[in-house]
Write a protein that binds this DNA or RNA. Structure first.
Lengths: 126, 126
DNA sequence: AGCATAAGTAGAATTATTATAAAATATATA
DNA sequence: TATATATTTTATAATAATTCTACTTATGCT
């Protein structure tokens, strides 16, 4: 692992958010102001291909990167807010499938986040 | 619904494949050689926003469009081949979640399709 | 027919991302 | 240590999918 690869890995895995390449770039820049965006792309791809990080693609947004601990994603249909979710009941059946010939799965659940629900409700009668 | 909207809708919903905008374009062109790609985009987006078709986005590939009947997707990790899958055991629990505050879900299962499995196995020792 | 609205066309623009070639840095070896 | 070799980074061009904008055409209504 090169210096930048390690730095980028740390940024991604210690963040509580799901960072885009731009956001990772911003954080690495604080420490290495001369770094170039392509370097972030290169290293993020290396990490992703090595299976050390996870990629989360959501409609209409740039790709985001995440740690690999198994969890699913909850996405607000309205604002795109992305959070982690652990579906205790489902995970066993899904995990069972994996191994049974399947390699992995990707589950996204859509909802309206509390903020959007409030906002949309208060707009109902207007 | 305009002429093209209807034509595009028919192409998408009667196809057994998961078509890209380019592929839809190709099919519509056979009948209307003068149609323009942007028109396909416009109408596909209209149909999608109206909830009449479904969008399937897969890493590294252009978006694909599909009918809305509920099913999940099975994707070959190697060649990207995309097929439909109905997970009888899981669907009820997922459907239960939906309605329980959740709006919908998107489940993709990754595997190696028979062709790729064969090909990769026969390369093992080389 | 005349006008309003919606739809389609043409092509430029945008955005995220990848590719490429040169320069810099790191590593290995004699 | 000096030199060769490989790897990484930089800088910038290229690409691909998609959206935007302005203009034109079609359609529906009075």
């Amino acid at each position: 692992m090169t210096k930048y690869e390690r730095e980028i890995y740390t940024v991604i895995t210690t963040s509580n958010e799901h960072l885009t390449v731009e956001q990772i770039y911003g954080q690495i820049q604080e420490k290495y102001p001369k770094i170039v965006l392509a370097t972030i792309y290169n290293n993020v791809n290396k990490l992703y291909e090595a299976g050390l990080i996870r990629k989360v693609s959501i409609e209409g947004m740039a790709d985001r990167y995440d740690h690999i601990q198994k969890h699913d994603h909850l996405i607000c249909r309205n604002c795109g807010k992305l959070s982690d979710i652990v579906l205790k009941d489902l995970t066993p059946s899904l995990q069972e499938m994996v191994g049974d010939g399947f390699l992995s799965y990707d589950l996204k659940v859509f909802y309206l986040c509390p903020d959007c629900r409030k906002r949309l409700n208060s707009n109902t009668g207007v």
